[in-house]
Design a protein around this nucleic acid. Sequence first.
DNA 1: TCGATATATTCCCATATAGGTATATAATGT
DNA 2: ACATTATATACCTATATGGGAATATATCGA
Lengths: 118, 118
Amino acid sequence: MARAATTTDAFNAVAEPRRREILDVLAGGERPVNDLVDALGLAQPQVSKHLRVLREVGAVDVREDGRRRLYRLNGEALRPIHDWVKGYERTWSERFEQLDVVLDELKEKEQGDGRNDE
Amino acid sequence: MARAATTTDAFNAVAEPRRREILDVLAGGERPVNDLVDALGLAQPQVSKHLRVLREVGAVDVREDGRRRLYRLNGEALRPIHDWVKGYERTWSERFEQLDVVLDELKEKEQGDGRNDE
DNA sequence: TCGATATATTCCCATATAGGTATATAATGT
DNA sequence: ACATTATATACCTATATGGGAATATATCGA
């Protein structure tokens, strides 16, 4: 098998840095394609293609406005990424490390104690 | 150009669900390859290959133990993902929405006020 | 109607996959 | 020494990619 399609899920879609850039720009509000072209310094067809991928995974919505298409962020689609990676926060956050220390101490106390309610 | 290599960065590395599973298992502590093989139900060579990718982006570390290799999580490598996606939390979290409402109100007040000592 | 503007789609191509299978390498036990 | 165990690497193949370029489609203004 080959690599999973970029349109498989949000993880694959945002692995491409340009697509993250697009979302970052859209975080500032609805934008037509050409604004994104200017903002990213990419050719228009590539932007349209990136937008298609983002649309297929639900990370953006489109609205027609004359000959323009206004794209809008739909952050909800990024939630699975957030939820997954959040579990790893403890591995680098000092706050969580401290909490782990406290929890370990509590656990030790509980065990050495024989009974739970001290 | 083709798609960026999976070893380019953490974003690309964890786009593959099996590699996320591996990290999830390693979150429980150091493990030899065979444990991961059993846990994932994947063939051993594929696991080794996934581990190589994870190693190249710094998401895991290895330690030799006789004929075994013990792999350990290095969550720090996932931090860029966390930091990027965290900015989008507000788009789905009600808590942040509420905060936005309050901030908007404050801003309005400040403007309608006539004087803002900026 | 015609030219300009905005966007999407199509075609081309080099490239890196992910899984399968076989094999290499190394350590261990007997 | 030898069989076994643990892991990594090499090879194969189908496939989707991202950029470039050209073109299609649709809307607007004159």
